[in-house]
């Protein structure tokens, strides 16, 4: 056993910072798209039209019951056969959004289903338009009640971004692989990267706690 020597890894900290930045960018982009897909998919499954419902349910089940890395390979290596060739980073964001959207839709669906019928009727009685009812009476309270589950899902999405290093996206794990090739200090680099991911997860959790207070101040009212 050799002593751990972090000097080679520290010397490449500029690469690591770039990797962290790319991880943050693709993860945040995927979270936004996953949320949009999740809301749309949840609304379509609850809308009642079975021609809309079945394809969406199939999408959710297929994504949830196949590995993320296979989805990434299908999008990056498989889609060119259908004439769609994507850059690694675009392929990564697309794969993460589709993957995250399937899980997010299940969470949001549960949130929407928890909204009482009386709430919607009250909105109608107050003369709100259907869109206003959906936005303020259904969606906002639904998101606020499932917010902790959404955060947990976003953390998993952040961690899953490491998988896209397999299609040579130079995010944090990909950068780690590169530095490993440069320094041959494999143990040191992956330990450092693990610590950085734990830090990113903690930062995301903290950021989401602040966001929750900003978006849903009514959850924190003193009664």
């Amino acid at each position: 056993m050799n002593a751990l020597d972090f000097s080679g890894v520290i010397a490449r900290s500029d690469l690591l910072i770039k990797g962290v930045w790319l991880t943050a960018q693709i993860s945040l982009a995927a979270m936004v798209f996953a949320l949009i897909i999740g809301v749309l998919a949840a609304v379509l499954t609850l809308a009642g039209n079975k021609f809309l419902r079945w394809p969406v349910l199939a999408y959710v089940e297929v994504i949830r019951n196949t590995p993320f890395i296979v989805q990434v390979f299908l999008i990056y290596f498989g889609l060119p056969a259908l004439g769609l060739r994507l850059e690694p980073i675009s392929a990564a964001i697309l794969a993460m959004s589709i993957y995250g959207g399937a899980y997010t839709s299940e969470i949001i669906r549960a949130g929407i289903q928890s909204i009482g019928k009386g709430q919607i009727e009250a909105g109608r009685a107050l003369g709100m338009s259907p869109l206003t009812i959906f936005r303020y009476v259904v969606l906002k309270p639904a998101l606020s009640s499932v917010f902790p589950s959404l955060v947990a899902q976003f953390i998993l999405l952040l961690l899953s971004s490491s998988v896209v290093s397999a299609i040579s996206v130079p995010e944090l794990t990909g950068t780690g692989n590169d530095i490993q090739g440069l320094t041959l200090r494999n143990m040191e680099i992956y330990l450092v990267i693990a610590v950085i991911y734990v830090g990113l997860v903690a930062a995301l959790k903290g950021g989401m706690t602040v966001l929750e207070r900003v978006l849903f101040p009514f959850k924190f009212l003193r009664r």
Partner: peptide, 24 residues
């Protein structure tokens, strides 16, 4: 639990893979 759940599985696998040879 916090550390393992906060580390991507892929990185955990790399650490295990290289760690065993590292530890001899």
């Amino acid at each position: 639990i916090f550390v393992v759940q906060g580390t991507p599985l892929l990185v955990t696998l790399f650490i295990a893979y290289f760690g065993t040879t590292y530890l001899g």
